[in-house]
């Protein structure tokens, strides 16, 4: 378990760093696949099997293929590179490292277990939500499906996600039409 975690965690982080470092866009896409695929592995280890599969299907199989497709459509030469100026890189890297340090120290300082107990005491919950705390559960497919249909059997008086689900579906339809409208070939405007 911990071995798998270490491997996936290292691959995710190193892949993300490689995305930042590499100059060629296609290499960036490759490292992004490594990083996002490892994040899917982390999701499997965190008992989120459906999210992991969705990550693989939507991100790696869908979005990234779309991005590479975009790269090919917009490439003005083989292995096109648009380098950033060194000063910008150094400044961005420094600010990023400072931000990373800040987040790390915050994560270290917070007493997560204590805050969990406090939240549970404040909300009047006596027991932890069944199945999602002890790492013994992994088949989240049915609970997720019911949650998206507006039923929450795992939480007492819990609200479902029927309305967000419907909004997301309408949103996807709008995006489908909008993207097709935006990207349509314009024959009248010829830019020299």
């Amino acid at each position: 378990m911990s071995w798998f975690f270490t491997i996936f965690a290292l691959a995710a982080c190193l892949g993300a760093v490689a995305v930042v470092i590499s100059q060629s866009v296609v290499r960036m896409a490759f490292w992004l696949v490594v990083s996002l695929g490892s994040v899917a592995g982390l999701f499997f280890l965190a008992d989120a099997d459906f999210i992991g599969a969705a990550q693989l299907l939507i991100y790696v199989g869908g979005t990234l293929v779309l991005l590479v497709f975009g790269i090919m459509l917009t490439a003005s030469g083989p292995y096109m590179k648009i380098p950033a100026s060194p000063a910008e890189t150094v400044v961005a890297g420094l600010i990023g490292l400072m931000f990373l340090f800040m987040v790390f120290s915050t994560i270290n300082d917070v007493d997560w277990n204590g805050s969990k107990d406090r939240i549970m005491a404040a909300s009047g919950q006596t027991e932890k939500p069944a199945g999602f705390d002890d790492g013994s559960e992994g088949n989240t497919l049915r609970p997720l499906g019911f949650a998206l249909l507006g039923v929450r059997p795992d939480v007492k008086d819990g609200a479902g996600y029927l309305l967000p689900f419907e909004i997301a579906s309408v949103h996807l339809l709008v995006v489908l039409i909008g993207a097709a409208y935006l990207a349509r070939a314009k024959r009248r405007q010829d830019v020299a």
Binding site: D47, I51, L148, H171, L182
Partner: peptide, 26 residues
């Protein structure tokens, strides 16, 4: 997985994935 958030966290990340795909398309 590790807090009392339960299933809601997974539903949220599902929505994030879906909206990210839409965002990438646009």
């Amino acid at each position: 997985k590790y807090t009392a958030l339960g299933l809601d966290g997974q539903v949220f990340s599902l929505f994030v994935i879906v909206l990210a795909a839409a965002e990438a398309a646009v």
